[in-house]
Design a protein around this nucleic acid. Structure first.
Length: 752
DNA sequence: GTTCTAGAAC
DNA sequence: GTTCTAGAAC
């Protein structure tokens, strides 16, 4: 940041800064101050005013902070206000120290008020707060999660109208590092451009998991439908990936590096969003194939613009290894000029094979600038992607195609064994071959840019088309069989014309809100309940766990200490226990409860758990067979709730009469009669095939969908009326369930 | 997960 | 007035 040329310099006045930090405990405010002070290269003097230490190293008052800040500013120092400052009231007194204050008007320096918002994910703040021991911060230990979340509820992001001349929003460690550099390099006569920088669009105030537990907000999704992008961004290495969003901030920056650092934004919410189908792609043909970058950047922008205009719920990420590349600057500035939606088209500096781990950008599809043989040879992006994806990509590519001609692309599903799949959540690599202008390489166009431009155009069109097709297929696969529940139409119709039904989805249904970016974990080093024996060994694990309410622990407690609950247990093995559901929703309703610690729901299940879930399936079969002997007219279904309310993986074995006074509300009904109920056979198949079970992001919609008879699909206004209908409905259960081994009765054989 | 209950729907 | 839902509390 050059920082020169501001008003301060013009008027020959020194500008002192009142830098108000805004952030929850554990967001890194003190560290930020320390780093700036350590790294300051100029003779600007900084004084940190920390309410936690202001009274001779002990916690003090806001008034003491105000007085100390006032004195420091009078002395010509720049000042950090190191306290949470999360709401307007907390900031307002400090704002009065700048602007029209006597310090500004009577001294030979002006007071400029800046805000730096450390808006890191709540779980990171909590994790750090929990880890603190007896340092200057009073908040540590087990209270941290509750306190941080409570404080974040009150969070009001600062606005320029409060009196700030500049506000920098930091959503991840990269942003923080950039802000540290910006202030560390700021000389006493330098000033920074005014305005908001890196401001996020949506304001997710709280750690959703805890708030969901507290029922303060709408529950949201945790689905990891294809390609697990779930991760802890606290592990993000700083400074490795920079994110730019066209259209943000000043446009006169001569140094793209500085700009990109400034404008990095909202990685916690948007960039890591798992639910948006995202393609990351490098520039095609401009490196080794020596295509003119000016023309290439025009084609990229044109292709991107056209694609985004016609395609919903997708995101494109242009990736270049370095911000010093001219193609990067060109694409970025042209995207800005073309007014391309910066939420849908990002320009990122970083390694395309590490976007998730190093940049917190989940891209389930990446494009490869391939060679015509589709081989890992050569260098650049092609070699890097093949190297990162391992042999699995080579094998998968060979299965799809032998060669590729210029202007074409081919999408290759990445096997789940590939490190790129496992580490980065990449499910597909699309190889693209662009035009070649390099005489040293095959099929050189010898400077024929008429042909070249057309081929490059075709390359991007083909790439984006392939990407869009993957999205369509993804919807198809995920909804196969479940479509009926989402659309509330009979299964037969749904299966007869899936494409028509897919197209019939309304826009709001198609465009999923991308909420709930895994903001549901806390670092759990304490309070493992009555699982004390295990906690001793897992204390040091410091694992991220979903927050389960105390009422949701009942099954977990039984699984961990079955001997204490013998009265409830029908059968016990080393792997599971069987018990009657405490509130059965049908004549027969038992649970097969896994004993394995850490296996809380189907999204935790991996291939290594396959033997366990198969054993649970077999146990369920044995039990329902026993019930069928007792009452031969019953029909059973076995399955899991997509998102269970109770911790500890449990398989429901439930008769399809739903004749029970405990079945009282819509949620009860829909949890067993929509796609929210995942048949055991399907779950096993999915884990076997892909390594994990499908969960969808809008499971809440399934639970609140209208009430329909599970046999004849008729709709009913409320639960009592539905139940009364079910009693007399003589239709058979849907054929799809019969055919796929999902139903179990004494009258027909089961596939499983 | 259930229970309780305010207030919406009928 | 009664039934039912949905949100809060646990």
């Amino acid at each position: 940041m050059d920082g020169k040329g501001g008003d301060g310099e013009k008027e020959g006045k020194r500008t002192v800064l009142l830098l108000i930090l805004v952030g929850a405990p554990g967001s890194g405010k003190s560290t930020f101050c320390d780093q700036v002070m350590k790294a300051t290269t100029s003779n600007r003097t900084w004084i940190r005013i920390c309410q936690d230490t202001i009274a001779n190293g002990k916690s003090g008052t806001k008034i003491q902070c105000l007085k100390r800040a006032s004195d420091a500013l009078k002395g010509g120092n720049s000042v950090f206000i190191d306290r949470c400052n999360l709401d307007i009231d907390q900031r307002s007194e400090f704002m009065k120290l700048g602007g029209s204050s006597p310090y500004a008007s009577t001294s030979d320096f002006s007071v400029d008020i800046h805000g730096v918002v450390l808006d890191l994910p709540a779980r990171i703040c909590i994790s750090r707060s929990v880890k603190r021991s007896t340092d200057e911060h009073s908040l540590h230990g087990g209270k941290a999660a509750a306190v941080v979340n409570k404080m974040l509820q009150k969070k009001e992001l600062p606005k320029l109208t409060e009196g700030f001349s500049r506000i920098t929003f930091c959503q991840n460690e990269n942003d923080v590092g950039d802000a540290v550099n910006t202030y560390a390099n700021l000389g006493p006569f330098d000033s920074l451009p005014s305005g908001c920088f890196g401001k996020k669009v949506a304001d997710s105030k709280v750690q959703l998991g805890i708030m969901r537990f507290m029922k303060k907000i709408d529950p949201s999704t945790t689905a990891i439908p294809d390609g697990n992008c779930s991760k802890d961004v606290s592990g993000t290495k700083p400074g490795t990936t920079e994110i730019c969003q066209p259209g943000e901030g000043p446009t006169n920056g001569s140094n793209p590096s500085k700009e990109s650092k400034q404008y990095g934004r909202d990685t916690s919410h948007h960039l890591s969003s798992k639910n948006i189908h995202t393609l990351a792609f490098p520039s095609i043909s401009t490196s080794d194939f020596q295509f003119d970058i000016n023309m290439a950047s025009d084609i990229i922008i044109e292709s991107v613009g056209a694609f985004l205009n016609k395609t919903e719920n997708v995101r494109l990420v242009f990736v270049d290894l370095t911000h010093r590349s001219n193609i990067f600057s060109l694409v970025r500035s042209k995207a800005m000029k073309a007014n391309i939606d910066p939420q849908k088209f990002l320009t990122v500096v970083g390694d395309i094979t590490k976007l998730s781990t190093e940049g917190n950008i989940c891209c389930n599809v990446i494009a490869n600038a391939a060679n015509w043989r589709l081989k890992p040879s050569g260098g650049g992006v092609n070699a890097a992607i093949f190297k990162a994806a391992g042999e699995a990509l080579e094998i998968a590519t060979r299965k799809c195609a032998g060669t590729l001609s210029p202007g074409n692309s081919i999408a290759v599903p990445l096997p789940s064994t590939s490190p790129l799949y496992q580490r980065e959540g990449v499910t597909h690599v699309i190889h693209v071959l662009g035009p070649n202008m390099n005489p040293q390489r095959p099929s050189c166009l010898k400077n024929d840019y008429n042909k070249g431009c057309k081929i490059l155009h075709d390359s991007y069109s083909s790439l984006f088309e392939n990407f869009a097709n993957l999205d369509r297929n993804r919807k198809y696969i995920n909804r196969e069989g479940d479509l009926v529940d989402i659309l509330n139409i009979p299964n037969k119709v749904a299966n007869a014309d899936l494409k028509t039904k897919r197209d019939a989805l309304t826009e709001p249904e198609r465009i999923k809100k991308c909420k709930g970016d895994s903001e549901q974990f806390v670092t759990r080093k304490y309070d493992l309940g009555d699982n004390s024996l295990r906690s001793e060994s897992s204390v040091e694990l410091n694992v991220k766990e979903k927050v389960w309410g105390s009422w949701a622990q009942a099954l977990h407690k039984i699984a961990m200490n079955p001997e204490k609950h013998q009265a409830l247990i029908l059968e016990e093995t080393d792997d599971y226990v069987v018990l009657n559901d405490l509130y059965p929703k049908a004549k027969k309703h038992v649970l097969i409860l896994a004993k394995l610690y850490g296996l809380d729901r189907i999204s935790d299940v991996r291939k290594e758990h396959l033997p366990l879930v198969k054993k649970m399936h077999s146990a369920g079969l044995r039990f329902l067979e026993k019930f069928l002997k007792e009452e031969s007219t019953l029909i059973f279904r076995m399955g899991y709730h997509m998102i269970p309310s109770m911790r500890q993986l449990h398989l429901h074995v439930i008769s399809q009469d739903f004749d029970s006074p405990n079945l009282k509300n819509k949620k009860h009904w829909n949890s067993f009669n929509t796609a929210f109920f995942r048949d055991s056979a399907d779950v096993i198949e999915e884990i076997d095939n892909t390594g994990r079970a499908v969960t969808i992001n809008d499971h809440d919609k399934l639970l609140s969908t209208e009430l329909r008879c599970h046999k004849c699909r008729s709709a009913h206004p409320n639960v009592p009326k539905l139940k009364s209908h079910i009693n007399r409905c003589s239709s058979s259960l849907p054929e799809s369930l019969l055919q796929n081994g999902r139903l179990f009765s004494s009258t027909f054989p089961n596939a499983q």
